[in-house]
């Protein structure tokens, strides 16, 4: 199963970069094409799987696309045990400061609990919240709000 997932991930990576990168023709070995990220690399976690999951307004429930990303995160994290994991929850600017800190904490906890359910060891995980501090985007419409209602999984090699 894990092997199957890794193959799928590698194919996904290749497809993503085939679509987004202009690959120059060279006489070199195809395996050295710039941009192809190995599953073991941190960039695979941060760029291919993705660190961020988004939430609905005033919710800390994980929707289907968040679960998909988090399952991929869990597989990667279980393969790469040397990383400590920091999850931070955020909110959009609608709502008071204290409530949004609590909502961010609830969102980071939802991500943590889901990763634990998918096999990540609890002692590797830490959570925090920034509430409505540090928005990613700063317009005052749903386009920005939806990007700001997020939880971000950061990793650090011990």
């Amino acid at each position: 199963m894990k092997f199957f997932f890794r193959v799928i991930c590698m194919i996904m990576t290749a497809l993503i970069f085939a679509c987004t990168n202009d690959i120059e023709e060279t006489n070199g070995n195809p395996s050295t094409i710039n941009g192809l990220i190995d599953f073991e690399e941190v960039e695979y976690f941060t760029e291919v799987i993705g660190q961020t999951v988004l939430f609905d307004i005033d919710k800390a429930d994980l929707n289907d696309s968040a679960r998909y990303i988090l399952i991929s995160q869990a597989v990667w994290l279980n393969e790469n045990n040397e990383y400590t994991i920091f999850i931070t929850g955020y909110a959009d600017e609608q709502g008071t400061r204290g409530y949004n800190l609590a909502l961010g904490a609830k969102r980071s906890a939802a991500v943590r609990d889901f990763l634990i359910l998918n096999g990540v060891k609890e002692d590797r995980l830490q959570t925090s919240t920034f509430g409505k501090e540090k928005p990613l985007k700063i317009c005052s419409s749903e386009k920005c709000y939806s990007a700001n209602r997020r939880a971000v999984t950061a990793i650090r090699r011990d």
Binding site: A60, G98, L101, A102, A105, K106, A109, A110, D113, Q126, T127, S128, T129
Partner: peptide, 27 residues
Amino acid sequence: PGEMSFSSSFSPNGEDIVFSLSAGSNT
């Protein structure tokens, strides 16, 4: 470890504080 605290305020005699504490998903 694992706890976050915020939204604090003093009691009228200044001896106690009340505040929010987030542990896990609960505040």
